[in-house]
Design a protein around this nucleic acid. Structure first.
Lengths: 240, 240
DNA sequence: CGGTCAGTTGAGAACTTTCAACATGGGTGG
DNA sequence: CCACCCATGTTGAAAGTTCTCAACTGACCG
């Protein structure tokens, strides 16, 4: 199950068998499973360990007093919830499940041990943290300066590449297991407008959506239409 | 000049004289000064050292092919450009000056030395990095789910608290040295709409703007109107 | 004094939201 | 097995927000 993380980090550096075993062992600990709409951790709570998504989609989100909800980022299989949270006293946002989610709880001690004994993993985790920050910055651009169709197209490109990195795409397709309302909460749009924007993208032939299966027949075309530049995902194998 | 950084970190932990001296020494190296609209570093370039803003306002920004520009974050005196950039091969965004800016270039070696010898600084820098990430997340919420007046009000609250943390406020006021166009590029709004929104905030008595001096007569009122919750700035002195 | 930049204003256009109704499909209880 | 329920997706139309364009003002500078 934690092969997703191994595979993700493998995009940046070459992990040894010992590195791989260490990751597998770290994920062997406590494991939890929750239903959609349940929270992994809530704003205001004190984080005690680092969570690794093993299966399903979760999200960071914030809810305003009057009920408006914004999804801040998607957490896909292989994603870690920041490795340094315990420096802070309390969460400033919540993490919730969008689908049934299985995740592992990794203790601070386990993480420290890995960091001490596996410099390559440490380095890869630094890369992962920087990419995560870059994704958040790109979302700022997305929400600030792209119109609905570009914005949604951009997200679909980003998710395709992220899922491909952990082996969860099939050809040009992947499973998009979230509702249109979720997409709206992530893109700062209403669910009605998401619906119409999806139709627009379908109408242009940029995507094919059958139930929950999304196909991007021509990734380059969708990227161009969405002003998507993958440089921020830093897939160039900087490591080693 | 680098007292701003010392003061900022002092919000989180108590630095020793030796810690303070180490920071001052680190900033004693190469120092550069640039004019507004010039870049400190450009997208695609290879970052070789960490920059510390000593004076003036800079910003991270991205420009789309068709010229649309989004400011991703403001860099204020005392702000460091991420301490781990050198893990990546190239910048995925640019950093540019909004006013005349003085900054120090801190080499990777210097930073490593500080990290090795001053655990309290290291810890405080971790806190600073987490707060920076939290700010970026909050901007996602801001752009996604707040209307113009709330959005701008939220930014003005955030900047007030950040500037106060480095000693750059005077009573209820601070200098807002950027143009309305800059504010628009940061908030995902047109400069025309920024202008009207500022008038709206002034009309409600939430802000007073005389030239470049901004006064927030009643911070709590502006916070309430903007749905601003300062928890994400993590000022609770978690450290020690 | 002319030029440039930042700020201001008005009006129409474009984009997005809201509301309300309806369609579809899977799951549950009778 | 069917009826019903509920969540999700779809559609239309009006309302609201924000943008664009274009003109104009004021301040500063050479």
């Amino acid at each position: 199950m934690s092969e997703h993380l191994i595979r993700k980090l493998g995009q940046f550096t070459t992990l040894s068998d010992s590195d791989r075993d260490a990751i597998l062992a770290a994920c062997g600990g406590k494991r939890r499973r929750i239903d959609p709409r349940e929270d992994i951790i809530r704003e205001g709570e004190n984080p005690t360990h680092v969570n690794l998504i093993l299966d399903g989609w979760a999200c960071r989100y914030k809810q305003l007093r009057d009920g408006r909800r914004q999804i801040i980022s998607f957490l896909l299989p292989g994603d870690l919830c920041d490795t340094h949270v315990y420096v802070l006293r309390e969460m400033d946002h919540s993490i919730g499940a969008l689908t049934p989610v299985t995740f592992a709880e990794i203790s601070r001690e386990t993480l420290n041990r890995i960091t001490a004994e596996h410099p390559r993993i440490t380095h890869a985790l630094e890369w992962d943290a920087l990419v995560t920050a870059a994704i958040q910055r790109e979302w700022t651009v997305n929400l600030g300066r792209r119109i609905a169709a570009e914005r949604l197209g951009h997200l679909l490109c980003e998710i395709f590449i992220r899922l491909r990195g952990v082996g969860l795409t099939e050809g040009h397709s992947y499973i998009l297991p979230v509702t249109q309302a979720d997409l709206g909460n992530a893109m700062g749009l209403s669910s009605v407008h998401i619906n119409r924007t999806l139709q627009e993208l379908r109408g242009c032939g940029l995507i094919v959506l059958k139930g929950r299966q999304l196909t991007i027949p021509n990734l380059a075309a969708l990227q161009t239409a969405s002003l998507f530049n993958p440089n921020y995902l830093h897939l160039g194998r900087g490591g080693r």
